[in-house]
């Protein structure tokens, strides 16, 4: 992936990461109508579309912020696939009524398929990480919050009244603990590790 050329639409990704109001508005103006149409044609309404689009944009923002998103295809195709997959997953979960899915000819863009799939995995990962973080012991939670908020380990140690070496060791063990929790979760298999 890294040897591929960035698509010019990377500007949307960067704009989201910068919380650029103009870019966000442009994304709505240019790319929302197609998603709204699709959801309306597939058992949803405009409110469903609003939620799906908003959640999708937050996923892209989170991924972009962690510098894990390099667009090698048009934003349009990527964004649509991501919204579409999210909507189909929601329909599957709800599963209350007979679902009619109007398959249409999808973009043949292979990159868009791959990238949107990676974003879906990323989203699942984030959700599981959040869930598992809540299961950590209070001491670990507190220490991790402090280390990532304060940055300087010396200050963290001081604020928690422990030695620098211990604070640092504790940080790695707490993240280690978290990796074990994540691995033990039944949802771990969806994460592509």
């Amino acid at each position: 992936m890294s040897d591929k050329i960035l698509h010019e639409d990377q500007k949307y990704i960067d704009g989201l990461a910068e919380n650029n109001t103009f870019i966000i508005q442009t994304i709505y103006d240019k790319f929302a109508p197609k998603v709204i149409n699709y959801i309306k044609q597939n058992s949803g309404d405009v409110y469903d579309a609003q939620d799906v689009i908003q959640e999708t944009i937050i996923t892209i923002y989170n991924q972009a912020k962690q510098k894990q998103l390099q667009l090698t295809c048009p934003f349009d195709a990527y964004f649509f696939l991501l919204c579409k997959r999210k909507w189909l997953n929601q329909l599957k979960k709800a599963n209350t009524k007979e679902v009619t899915i109007n398959e249409e000819i999808l973009s043949k863009e292979e990159d868009a398929q791959v990238l949107s799939f990676e974003s879906t995995v990323f989203e699942n990962k984030e959700a599981l990480f959040n869930e598992m973080f809540q299961q950590l012991g209070e001491a670990c939670k507190e220490l991790l919050k402090a280390t990532f908020k304060i940055k300087s380990m010396e200050e963290v140690a001081k604020s928690l009244d422990i030695s620098y070496a211990y604070a640092r060791k504790k940080k790695s063990l707490c993240i280690g603990q978290l990796t074990k929790l994540v691995k033990a979760s039944p949802k771990f298999n969806q994460l592509n590790y």
Binding site: N19, Q50, I53, Q54, I57, K125, L144, F148, I175, V182
Partner: peptide, 30 residues
């Protein structure tokens, strides 16, 4: 996995305020 978790925590905890601002802004635009 350790690296991803570390990056996740950094984004969620260090940029908490920034993310909240983003979400608020997105809400308005939406």
């Amino acid at each position: 996995m350790y690296r991803d978790l570390s990056s996740h925590l950094e984004h969620n905890i260090t940029n908490e305020q920034e993310s909240a601002d983003f979400k608020a802004n997105l809400d308005v635009i939406s």
